[in-house]
Design a protein around this nucleic acid. Structure first.
Lengths: 226, 226
DNA sequence: CAAACCTTGTAAGAATTTCGTAAAATTAAC
DNA sequence: GTTAATTTTACGAAATTCTTACAAGGTTTG
């Protein structure tokens, strides 16, 4: 993996979680410091100058949002990646989090594997100066980095073609894509697939998501619309 | 980055959000003013003459849509970019937003980085004169990308032929199209359809829209006219 | 002026197209 | 070799599109 030797600060008040995350990130050659409350997080951040800061929302002294606000107001932390750890159903703090200058969020509980992959994709993004590629429609979130769709916090696993299709349509919500455009984008111009293939995939997406987010425009194509 | 030194006005009733957005846009060499309600937004806009105005939908005094309507009615704000901030799930105001002359909308919550990149891409779009293909006749808007017609904010779904026909006529408002021209454009020169076919489609369009926007010119053809 | 003529509007329904669905067949992944 | 993903096939349902037949105007002509 290209992304190594980065400095990462994790702030959480649960020592067990700190240990697990730290251990896993160190395995991937990252340099990790930990903080157990908000004040300590700020203090260490200033000395340690991490590339990435992972902040639990609920912490003693200062909570994650306050820490983020304070750090973001300092010029030296403008380009630091800040990520929030939020409890699953805590939609509110997640919302506030992004408003207050976070770059992304991670839902608790989080497996070490997902954590590591997230962290790496965040670094990749930073290097390329890219913004988050997550398409966020409220209840529905489409994350092309993880190839996962979230609906009301629940992750829904789509097959590759299904995901590609949904993601493609969702890049321009409301816009109708012709069957040809879809074929070209998802299958490529040289591959020839039958007429009903698109329909079948659309059907599976609708089935799995359980909501009408893809609308049919008869005689024209499909569009993503909530 | 090419787009710098623009004047931006942000209106939102949450001071924290104003601060963070302002800070981040200033970092990118934009000149930023803020307003905390609708009335103030209008007042400052008149003095400050911003290139871009970001309006929260939900604001005290006057909401974002009202502010937009008022500003758009003034000649000096015809070419100003106006963007709405909408809470997630608030599809209605999003639709209304575009109805009332906004150029784009941003979903809350929005991270500063996304915000900055959006703002820059908006300026880029303006410079390149990239524009949507929406035909705008006030109450009536025809959007060939969405394949949807809006009448007074209500979206009206037309079948493909109906939409194509309306859109074709509306591309040159007032101009009369001969039946032959219409047949050639919508059906193609090789397809042969009966005499009454056009009439029937015209009828359905009139029925669905509920207004007389297509006028008959007897012995000649049809024209789009409001 | 009225009859014949021409053009368009309207309603109903037939014909056609397009899409959704289930299930089977094929392909790829593990 | 088993499982999952993808594609094809076949068919029915639904929506669209088109035709037909006639009505309602208007215009021309005798």
């Amino acid at each position: 993996m290209a992304e190594e030797g980065k400095k990462i600060l994790i702030a959480d008040d649960e020592p067990d979680i700190l240990e697990i995350i730290k251990f896993n990130l160190q395995l991937h050659d990252h340099e990790v410091e930990t903080a157990k409350d908000g004040d300590q997080a700020i203090e260490i951040a200033k000395k340690f100058k991490p590339d990435l800061i992972i902040l639990d929302i609920m912490m003693p002294k200062k909570n994650g949002i306050e820490v983020c606000k304070i750090l973001r107001s300092l010029p030296e932390f403008q380009d630091t990646i800040i990520v929030f750890l939020t409890a699953l159903n805590d939609e509110l703090s997640h919302v506030k989090g992004l408003e207050f200058g976070a770059d992304d969020y991670l839902n608790k509980p989080i497996s070490p594997k997902v954590m590591v992959s997230k962290v790496n994709s965040l670094f990749r993004r930073l290097n390329k100066q890219e913004q988050s590629r997550i398409l966020d429609f409220g209840d529905l979130k489409i994350d092309p980095d993880q190839y996962v769709v979230y609906f009301k916090g629940q992750s829904i696993s789509l097959a590759k073609k299904e995901f590609d299709l949904l993601h493609f349509l969702a890049t321009k919500p409301g816009r109708v894509f012709l069957r040809n455009e879809i074929l070209n984008e998802i299958w490529g111009s040289e591959v020839i697939v039958g007429d009903r293939t698109i329909d079948v995939h659309i059907r599976k997406i609708r089935q799995k998501l359980g909501i009408e987010c893809i609308k049919t425009v008869k005689g024209v194509g499909y569009k993503f619309d909530l």
